[in-house]
């Protein structure tokens, strides 16, 4: 799963200046990126590129890890052995993806520990979508279908992003995620073909997850000040609004197939642009969730902090054991 890049304070941060860097090095760097070359960890890179990447990759990693929680909430209650195994494999994948991404970010000189501490201190962001609660089993279907569907749209272009380790991590992530959306849609199909209660459950899940899913693509292009630099550096490959439109166009027919109604009275086909017109997103809600005011934001952060703090003695014990072993070998 993925988040588009979120600014530290609700969306408005000026582009980082690169004027203090050696102009010749910057020019050579930008020429390499423009020629579709990959930048590797020990290559020279502008400080702003490094910082932007650490922020973007770590936000992405945090989103994967926090994203384990809403779906993990249903692992003990999955309604069949098959569903339980699939969901466990999927949530495990999210953990793996977080791990790949932390490792990619670590090649830029920031340790996983530092990134995790930034998350726990509330300094780093993660995707707003994971601050919504999973109330019914249909939410697991809706997350796979909508949230992973939105994530894939964001992630596929990043397989060609300019930073080698990030691009390679994304290739692995995309390959593994290919089953995630399908399993979600399969859950929705089963519910859609099920009892009246199951259909109602599916519609309710769509009602609650639709707008937060659209928000996943980030603020409107007009409010994305870093975009130009992001495009030039091949850190960002498509605009938020373009991806959002693409998502809506792809998803509406899928909802129709399920017999479900998208909760947007303004949604209609626009034959002229060959795409859907849709209603205004509640950006106030989006920025509130970015600020940490989402319905389950506190629970999510507490769960992550608890896991990290309560696991400290385990990590220390293994280190202590290794130190003893080395001492015994040296003796």
């Amino acid at each position: 799963m993925y988040t588009t890049e979120l600014k530290e304070q609700g969306g408005k941060v000026a582009p980082v200046s690169i004027v203090s860097e050696d102009p010749e090095l910057v020019a050579a760097f930008e020429a390499r990126v423009a020629a579709d070359e990959f930048i590797e960890p020990k290559d020279w890179m502008p400080e702003a590129y490094r910082r932007t990447l650490v922020r973007q990759i770590s936000q992405h990693a945090h989103s994967e890890i926090v994203g384990m929680l809403p779906e993990g909430n249903w692992l003990t209650r999955a309604p069949s052995l098959r569903r339980k195994a699939i969901l466990l494999a999927k949530v495990q994948d999210e953990g793996g993806h977080g791990l790949y991404l932390y490792c990619a970010a670590e090649t830029l000189g920031t340790s996983r520990e530092e990134m995790i501490e930034a998350l726990h201190a509330g300094k780093a962001k993660y995707s707003t979508i994971f601050n919504y609660p999973t109330l019914t089993w249909a939410d697991i279907g809706a997350i796979g279908w909508l949230v992973d569907g939105a994530a894939i749209m964001n992630q596929v272009p990043l397989q060609r992003t300019s930073y080698g380790p990030y691009a390679r991590a994304m290739i692995r992530v995309c390959k593994e995620e290919s089953f995630h959306q399908r399993q979600g849609y399969e859950i929705m199909m089963t519910l859609g073909a099920g009892t009246a209660e199951q259909k109602a459950m599916a519609q309710d899940a769509l009602n609650r997850w639709w707008w937060p899913s659209l928000m996943m693509f980030g603020p409107p292009d007009a409010d994305s000040p870093n975009s130009a630099q992001g495009f030039r550096w091949r850190i960002k490959r498509d605009s938020n609004d373009d991806l959002r439109r693409k998502f809506v166009d792809a998803t509406v027919p899928q909802a129709e197939f399920l017999g479900l109604t998208i909760p947007d009275p303004d949604l209609r086909w626009n034959a002229e642009k060959e795409g859907y017109d849709f209603g205004e997103i509640d950006w106030e809600e989006f920025y509130a969730v970015v600020r940490g005011e989402g319905p389950t934001a506190r629970e999510r952060m507490k769960a992550r902090r608890d896991a990290w703090e309560q696991g400290a003695w385990v990590r220390e014990a293994a280190d202590a054991h290794e130190a003893k072993r080395r001492a015994r070998l040296a003796a």
């Binding site: 670590e106 340790s111 996983r112 520990e113 995790i116 501490e117 400290a312 990590r315 220390e316 280190d319």
Partner: peptide
């Protein structure tokens, strides 16, 4: 209390 292991 927040130590992480070495990277491999």
């Amino acid at each position: 209390m927040s130590h992480d292991w070495p990277l491999w």
